[in-house]
Design a protein around this nucleic acid. Sequence first.
DNA 1: CGTTGACCATGACATTTGTCAGATCACCCG
DNA 2: CGGGTGATCTGACAAATGTCATGGTCAACG
Lengths: 201, 201
Amino acid sequence: MIRVLLAEDQGMIRGALASLLGLEPDIEVAGEAADGDEALAVAVKVRPDVALLDIEMPGADGLTACAKITERVPACRVMILTTFGRPGYLRTAMEAGAVAFLVKDSPARELAAAIRRVHAGERVIDPGLAAAALSAGPNPLSPRERDVLAAAADGSTIVDIAARLHLSEGTVRNYLSAAIQKTRARNRIEAVQRARTQGWL
Amino acid sequence: MIRVLLAEDQGMIRGALASLLGLEPDIEVAGEAADGDEALAVAVKVRPDVALLDIEMPGADGLTACAKITERVPACRVMILTTFGRPGYLRTAMEAGAVAFLVKDSPARELAAAIRRVHAGERVIDPGLAAAALSAGPNPLSPRERDVLAAAADGSTIVDIAARLHLSEGTVRNYLSAAIQKTRARNRIEAVQRARTQGWL
DNA sequence: CGTTGACCATGACATTTGTCAGATCACCCG
DNA sequence: CGGGTGATCTGACAAATGTCATGGTCAACG
């Protein structure tokens, strides 16, 4: 019996996935969590064989939870299940110790198959996505550039960002300009979008 | 037996929801679709009692499909199941003839209950969301303002938008300015975000 | 130890963006 | 019919944004 921890913030999806896994005779949902912090707590308590984590969750996201679970519960093998197959997500997931990376676009039957393969010691990664992650290269944004771009993502003005990060306005403009060029964008809006689709934010 | 059509683009979620509904003795998944156009075609063919439509789908979205199914298959009662409980979505869904509006955040067990209530002739709408939709009022953006804001949403520059919509640059700036004020935003980025969260785009 | 390169930080300048006042047109209502 | 209302469209001006040149710090490398 493979004991699985299921972390997904949308209740209806979590329940539906639990139902899907419940059909499998050799898989058991040993715990559920609605955010990253809860996922870690439940993983520590129930010691599952496999943790299936969504990335986009409130509070600690799935990638953060992945790193913590890998550290605190090394016997638990972590799989990422996400809506967005962004190259940067895959890269971060691998660095955080994940052994599988699935996208919700895939057919439903692949989920149980992937869990069995992971439990058997394999890694499961979509080949096309792996190629995209490798060809895209690592995140080119410096930490500060990433901070500033992330702060700009919600529509804040330069003055706001400068105040929030304790920088001069000129400095903020400079980082944004650098981010715009590194993302090959024409303005901050495009820069935010490119960075998002690459998983750099 | 309640015969349900399930339209959802993410294969794994579609399969999981089908599994969830398969647990119910009085509900049968009579058809599945991965986008709005397919949903209409399948609805015409299998004549389901209830259609459960996601909104965010490639091609024709769930709201468009809702209007067409309501027109072509009047016996089929349409339910919307979406990630985002945006007031404008709810309003549009009601105008398109939907009889239920569910968000994926809700607990999984509510899905089957909602389907039964809809099949019994009731409407199912989250009271809080209904209140939000009413208090937010209708979409304040004029058609042209909406066009321009939507064109600006992907980071296009004024010149691009002007060329795409065959307008002068000053006109585009003017519409954007109007949209910024109507959304109570400080710049186009905030305006796009506010409009999105309200379901106005 | 010097040099190279990356990152952090800033202000001056040019470009883009947002605001305003106004013109035209269609439509509704008294 | 005529006045009012709101949508569409435009150019001039003010404000915000993006670019550039520059300097400082620090770690890596020969």
